[in-house]
Nucleic acid binder design. Structure first.
Length: 659
RNA sequence: AGGAAAGUGGAGUAACUGGCAACUCGACAGCCUUUGAAGCUGUUGUUUCGGGUUCAAAUCCCGACUUUCCUUCCA
């Protein structure tokens, strides 16, 4: 079975841990904070954790990191669980807040060990004691409180005797550490706020670092993956786990950091997503232009496509921005093999087929030959998902005297390279014959009202266009989505231009609405079917707004449009002339020729020849110019000829290869 | 400023730890085509830069440069 995660620095660690016996089974976890909706960034992290567990026959835990009652809501918990299950990631969900009692006990233990103290300074006073990284902080006057006093204070904090912000439980580590995270960071704060899950049971809440380490251990996590900004936090993570022991802690997890992946032409921070909604730049969390899972689902992407994308972008220890094309490719690639083809016209132009005597019913295949050929089981899906043999995968389309074609598919006088219909020209109608445009009808303002065409009995056409019957096609609304922003990195751009909001880079055309006509065959199939509207892209009905008699289709993704790109480019200046390469100043002096005695040479030659004979293709490649292969031959030779000077081996090989 | 992490084509990820710079996306060109799609073939590189070690460096050493992160009672 192929692996879900290609080898990377994390799989190396896991394999070593399995091999040395440090762990018996891999346990990973995904710890979202329920303060917003899951988005593409989450799917990357979650996919990594989930796939790693799957690859090594381990366990994956979903844990709600619900330690901040001020921002977290049940609504988000449910939405996250729902979205992840939709992605195919189902599990027993854990809640950090369910373990508050254990966390409290562990904190008491730290106090008892003299490793934590209650600081009673205000936030401002504490900040005043903080220095820069090169100088030690000034200790708080409360740093040396007795264990007994700390215990009492912490108990009173829990009992609710103090208002918010008056006391803070801090770890007692090192005020001089160059790692600022180690300068007595906060463990527990006072917060008189009801928790969505725990109600009023608590008025002290654990802070991130503390909760993360303890919860990972409680959940039995072995490899705790997080993003790069937490590298400095690893020291505190380890410090906590080394200094706390509690029967509820089932494992000694270790933290590893990976680089985040952001996506071009979008933003992913929760604050910014919220602003998009507040400013009504989008209609909500599930607006199909949003990067949330809910939005992408509504738009029509499949979990398969999203997972393929998450898998395809890889893992490394560097934050990276991924080309939006990678997502678009994953979506098209997924849809290409699963979507039946039908025809829809987005901007109708009436065509009258003057010589069509009677309407015809045409049986047209749902799939082109290449999809059928690529099918692994030889079957293809109907719109309802059922897989059938290709000859059963077809639908009936009416050809009538009046049809609609796309306005873009007609040009009165052709431009260079135009392969569609022109006045006096011919084009093929998909699935039928060739038509010729005889004349056209214009309004007084010059707008083309109708084309009068004749079906040809023979002849050739260089282009093929789609069409629908004007009599039987059904009207529908098409929502064409495009990138939300007009620049690849709106956040970066906004930061560079002073006083510029990222919203100024919104793409004004990210949603375009068209009123088109659609072949009526789709009425016979389930409303949640996805289709390719030929030459227009992949579509499905909007699950919220579409209804019988008022169909609304979302364009999931357009087809790749190389012609549109060429035509649109027009007078765009071609990139500046290539810099001419400067010849390298001075070649490295050749290594001095080595004198090789005939004896030595004769001794080596047989084994070297056998190496060359064993790799005829590489010898050929070498002679074809790939001289870098010399290193490969030397390497091979050195495996068997230990003790021989590689210099001599190389020299002899060179002679053998270049007689 | 101090500390940390990281730099491989236009983009993302690799390269058995010193021995063929590979794979995917994009772009471009050609082929094919009843979707200007898909598919097929090809092109797209001074491995950030400069030194060094070595028969051999993306990989090891030294120096520079650049980027990101940390100095929240958020996570």
């Amino acid at each position: 079975m192929s692996r879900l995660v290609s080898p990377n620095f994390i799989t190396e660690i896991i394999e070593a841990d399995l091999e040395t016996g440090r762990i018996k089974q891999v346990v990973t976890r995904f710890p979202p904070e329920p303060n917003g909706y899951a988005h593409l960034g989450h799917t990357f992290a979650c996919n990594l954790n989930h796939s790693l567990a799957a690859d090594y026959n381990g366990i994956w835990v979903l844990r709600m990191d619900d330690t901040n009652p001020e921002t977290e809501k049940l609504e988000y918990v449910n939405a996250i669980i729902h979205d992840l299950e939709w992605m195919g990631w189902k599990t027993q969900v854990q809640f950090a807040s369910d373990d508050f009692e254990i966390m409290y006990q562990c904190a008491v233990q730290l106090i008892e060990k003299g490793l934590a103290y209650v600081d009673s300074l205000s936030k401002e006073e504490m900040a005043a004691l903080r220095t820069t990284a090169d100088k030690p902080d000034t200790p708080s006057p409360y740093r040396n409180r007795s264990v007994a006093e700390n215990l009492e204070m912490f108990a009173r904090m829990r009992a609710g005797e103090f208002p918010n912000g008056t006391h803070l439980l801090r770890a007692k580590i090192d005020l001089a550490s160059p790692n600022m995270k180690l300068r007595d960071l906060g463990l527990y704060r006072i917060l008189h706020t009801e928790h969505y899950r725990q109600g009023a049971a608590w008025c002290i809440y654990p802070l991130y670092d503390y909760a993360q380490a303890i919860n990972d251990a409680i959940n039995g996590v072995t490899h705790s993956l997080c993003s790069l900004e937490f590298v400095d936090n690893r020291a505190i993570y380890d410090w906590l786990l080394e200094n706390i022991s509690h029967p509820a802690l089932k494992s000694r997890p270790y933290q590893y950091e990976f680089g985040r992946r952001s996506l071009e032409y979008t933003v992913v921070s929760k604050r910014k997503l919220r602003r998009l909604i507040e400013t009504q730049s989008v209609s909500g969390w599930d607006d199909p232009r949003m990067p949330t899972i809910a939005a992408q689902r509504r738009r029509g992407l499949t979990p398969d496509a999203i997972r393929a994308f998450a898998h395809g972008i890889g893992v490394s220890r560097t934050n990276r921005t991924v080309d939006i094309g990678a997502l678009e490719y994953a979506v098209r690639d997924d849809l290409n093999n699963r979507c039946p083809r039908v025809m829809a016209v987005l901007r109708p132009l009436k065509v009258i087929l003057e010589n069509l005597e009677a309407p015809q019913s045409l049986e047209l295949p749902f799939f082109p030959p290449d999809v059928i050929n690529a099918s692994l089981d030889g079957l293809v899906p109907l719109p309802n998902g059922q897989r059938v043999s290709p000859d059963q995968a077809s639908r009936i389309v009416q050809l009538t005297k009046e049809i609609f074609i796309e306005q873009d598919d007609f040009l009165e006088t052709p431009t260079a390279g135009f392969k569609r219909l022109t006045l006096g020209g011919t084009v093929r109608l998909r699935g039928t014959g060739i038509i010729r445009c005889e004349r056209l009808e214009k309004s007084d303002s010059g707008e083309i009202l109708a084309l009068y065409c004749t079906l040809q009995t023979e002849g050739k056409a260089s282009g093929v266009i789609h069409w629908v019957s004007a009599e039987s096609a059904i009207p529908f609304e098409a929502r064409l989505y495009d990138r939300l922003f007009s620049v690849p990195s709106p956040e970066k751009e906004a930061k560079e231009e002073e006083d510029t909001d990222f919203l100024t880079y919104l793409n004004p055309n990210s949603l375009e609405i068209r009123h088109g006509m659609l072949e009526n065959s789709i009425l016979e199939h389930p409303s949640q079917a996805r289709y390719q509207f030929e030459r227009n892209g992949y579509f499905w009905q909007d699950p919220i707004d579409s209804r019988q008699g008022a169909l609304v289709f979302n364009r999931i993704i357009g087809l790749k449009d190389t012609w549109g790109a060429v035509a649109g480019e027009g007078q765009k200046a071609k990139g500046e002339s290539k810099k001419t390469k400067e010849p390298k100043a001075e070649a490295k002096p050749e290594a001095p020729e080595i004198e090789i005695s005939a004896e030595v040479r004769d001794a080596l030659e047989p084994s070297l020849r056998s190496i060359l004979e064993a790799n005829p293709d590489k010898v050929g490649a070498y002679k074809g110019g790939r001289v870098g292969l010399l290193g490969f031959f030397v390497g091979e030779a050195m495996k068997t000829l230990k003790g021989t000077s590689p210099q001599i081996v190389q020299a002899v090989l060179k002679q053998l290869l270049e007689p």
